[in-house]
């Protein structure tokens, strides 16, 4: 008689990290004109987030939106929010003591190990990468990071990143560091030094550029992708990665760069 595995051994009840729970804003720090870091303490402790994971933040009377985790400190965690629209603008104005809803931590995660990494972050894309740098250090790996922005006053987490590894700076207008995009700088670095893996987060053109670059250089790369999300847990279908059958909230947000490029090219060839 073949052995019958009872399904009841695993996942007998639902995954509670997908439940919306109240959380208090305990601190908020302005990082630059666009971005604020908000420290949240949930009323029910959440399991430690893995680097790359995100959390859904519900601002009552506004929307529930996805945010990367940029830091975790046991009973509280940090998100770093760029004001781009109605919900993020309100979120960034909420005073300490305000309550919001959180659902997390969600999504797959970066598999970090004892390797040499180049991280490439554009704009608020640096947020999940500083948390990943802490993870890389814990796994005894080595990290260098490219932090890119349009101008010097939009550069994010320079001091924090320096604690975890070498920091390369790029600005589009040349006001600090390398004069050019994060992609241009990544290209320079990769042509002179070798890395085991590259991880990129930021605007879509940066993700595509770095993915293509790494495929050319034959380096394993991962992207942290973004799509409009309504549920964050794989049940509404709003975050499908361009007709690929992959959900950014559940199969991602971390994707192998080759799979990511294939999904995007399929969309282009369809149009």
């Amino acid at each position: 008689m073949s052995t019958l595995k009872s399904g009841a051994h695993q996942g007998y009840l639902v995954d509670r990290s997908k439940e919306i729970v109240g959380a208090e804003i305990i601190k908020s720090v302005r990082e630059n004109v666009l971005v604020k870091s908000i420290y949240l303490r949930p009323f029910r402790p959440l399991a430690k987030p893995k680097p790359g994971q995100f959390v859904m933040i519900w601002v009552p009377n506004m929307e529930e939106i996805p945010m990367s985790v940029s830091g975790f400190y046991g009973d509280h965690f940090r998100i770093s929010v760029a004001s781009v629209g109605p919900t993020t603008r309100v979120l960034n104005e909420l005073p300490v003591g305000t309550l919001v809803g959180v659902k997390g931590f969600l999504g797959n995660a970066l598999q970090l190990g004892n390797k040499k990494y180049l991280l490439v972050g554009g704009g608020y894309g640096v947020a999940p990468l500083v948390y990943a740098m802490a993870g890389i250090r814990n796994s005894h790996g080595e990290a260098q990071i490219v932090i890119g922005a349009r101008t010097r006053d939009l550069l994010l987490f320079l001091d924090e990143a320096k604690r975890f590894g070498k920091v390369h700076i790029s600005t589009d207008d040349g006001s600090e560091g390398f004069h050019g995009t994060a992609l241009d700088l990544a290209k320079e670095i990769l042509s002179s030094e070798s890395f085991d893996e590259v991880i990129v987060c930021g605007p879509e053109p940066l993700l595509i550029g770095v993915s293509e670059l790494c495929s050319e250089y034959n380096i394993q790369a991962y992207v942290l992708a973004e799509r409009y999300m309504k549920c964050g847990i794989g049940l509404c279908g709003s975050c499908v990665l361009d007709g690929s059958g992959l959900l950014v909230c559940r199969d991602g947000p971390v994707f192998d760069a080759r799979i990511y490029l294939k999904a995007l090219r399929r969309k282009i060839s369809k149009n």
Binding site: V14, D15, K18, E19, I20, I233
Partner: peptide
Amino acid sequence: EGFTTPIITAVRCGYLNAV
């Protein structure tokens, strides 16, 4: 368009949705 978010949450014994 569906409802505005939040549209889904887990509860102890299942999921609650109003998509």
